[in-house]
Simulated assay, not measured.
Amino acid sequence: MITEQSLVVDLKNEETRAKAFETLLHTYKERLYWHIRRIVLNHEDTDDILQNTFIKVFKNIDGFEGKSKLYSWLYRIATNEALSFLTSKSRKLGIQSQELQNKMVEDLKADSYFEGDEIQYKLQAAIATLPEKQKLVFNMKYFDDLKYQEISEILDTSVGGLKASYHLAVKKIEQYLKDS
């Protein structure tokens, strides 16, 4: 089992970079895919964003200082790429971000890659109503099972603030599901 530190060393070394990057892809591709997918809800967009994420990681690995865990850095890049994509998409369509969220949830019904049932669909609709930060915190805690400290590193926010955001998100989702 390769350690995170040795993987970073190998990624920064010209001679071992290609093999190390293969290991990085193998280790994190699926987790990052699902993290991005929960933000953008669409398979094709997720694939594009995931590819952009790994390109950015490859180009910027020399700048990784190791102040956080490697996967926290990867999650931060993936999160930023996904949020930038959504901002760009809402601008292109000339709609507000909440309208885009509603449209993305509606599009889930026709998405052949969405394997959820009606309950999963309602949960996604409820999550779409949350403010961006609450949505991210909820997804990372509920689906990715990350600890608050890990989420704190990824989002660069205090643990206390994250706990409050998660609590509010859960309450809003519960209310949405009761009302629908």
Rank of each mutant, 00 (worst) to 15 (best):
Q96G: 10
L130K: 01
Y113G: 00
S112W: 08
E118Q: 14
S112L: 13
M104G: 00
A128C: 04
E99K: 10
Y121I: 01
L130F: 06
T87W: 03
A126F: 07
T129A: 02
L100H: 04
E132R: 04
D117Y: 09
T87Y: 09
E106G: 01
Q134R: 03
D111P: 02
I119F: 15
K103H: 05
K92Q: 13
L93H: 02
I127E: 02
D117E: 08
M104A: 06
S112I: 14
E132D: 06
K92N: 05
K133S: 04
Q101G: 01
K109Q: 12
A110E: 14
I119P: 00
Q120M: 14
T87E: 08
I119W: 08
D117S: 09
Q98V: 13
S97D: 11
E132Y: 01
E106V: 05
S97A: 12
S90Y: 08
N102K: 08
Q98K: 12
E115D: 10
K92H: 07
L108C: 05
L130D: 02
K122F: 11
P131K: 02
Q120C: 14
S90A: 09
K109L: 15
G94L: 10
Q101P: 00
D107G: 03
Q98E: 15
G94R: 03
A126G: 08
T129W: 00
G94D: 08
E99F: 12
L130C: 02
S112V: 14
Q124E: 13
Q120R: 07
I127V: 15
N102F: 13
S90N: 04
L123N: 00
K89T: 07
E115L: 15
S88V: 02
Q96L: 11
